[in-house]
Design a protein around this nucleic acid. Structure first.
Lengths: 136, 136
DNA sequence: CTTGACTCTATACCATAGTATAGAGTTTAG
DNA sequence: CTAAACTCTATACTATGGTATAGAGTCAAG
């Protein structure tokens, strides 16, 4: 029960070119070929594509996903190292959340400064952005 | 009191090529030239580069920064529209924070599932990522 | 048995925000 | 006056994650 690249693409809801691209990047195993050179996939290819999408949704890059997959192949899943990568990503996400919160506060402060401006003043947001004292 | 591109780059701590790139993209006014074709900048160029950096730090793309700058030029700062753009960005940042929090929770759940795994089990993180039921 | 749909490779292209390089000309310090 | 440092334009290249296209070959349905 083999699938063509188009059938896999439909099942996983990705582009045909994207599958070839993933194959080139080593995220999807190079499929067997028919005599005419057509790729022949199994169901596992669809599972793999789903894995990639879910990992992307969690903030992993294709490079990182490749590393995660390598941990599975080597030694029947080195779970501890997978967990470590997950925890690294958690730290990164936490940092990014903190950064965005600071950014949000600064933007709110700037937006509020517009309200207290007199009609003849320059735009306080634009003024503030020019100044190194802005400290985001 | 004119500055060469190199002096502006040093003062604003950006690359010389970056200034030329911004000029091409219309973020920095095309400078006057000497007879030999060298750009001549004023202090305002340094201020402008600082503006760009601060706005980038707040999450504005170069395209958006160009729009902000256009609001200044036209009609001596259309402050209301600047404020509107700031509030749009605040909304975007807030959404992004919510997304990242969901991602963080999912990652934490996955990492925790490693702790409760028995030695013979497959890595629960890798298993979960294959499953559409993951719901990030 | 032809036509349309599909697949193949290779290459180019999109956005984003730059950086690097080549090859030529200019300016400045010793 | 020469050599180093700087500037000029134009083009290519980086990373990221794909998408689009050209030109050729293959497969399936009517």
């Amino acid at each position: 029960m083999t699938l063509t690249i188009g059938q896999v693409a439909d099942a996983a809801e990705v582009n045909v070119q994207t599958i070839r691209y993933y194959e080139r990047r080593g995220l999807v195993a190079a499929a067997n070929r028919t005599e005419a050179g057509y790729r022949q996939f199994g169901d596992d290819a669809v599972t793999r594509l789903r894995f990639i999408r879910h990992a992307q949704d969690l903030g992993f890059s294709l490079k990182e996903i490749k590393e995660l997959l390598a941990l599975r192949v080597r030694n029947h899943s080195e779970c501890g190292r997978v967990e470590a990568k997950a925890r690294e990503k958690i730290e990164l996400v936490a940092r990014r959340i903190r950064d965005l919160r600071r950014i949000k506060r600064t933007l709110e402060r700037l937006a509020a400064s517009c309200a207290s401006r007199r009609a003849t003043d320059e735009c306080p947001i634009l003024e503030a952005l020019e100044d190194d004292a802005i400290r985001i």
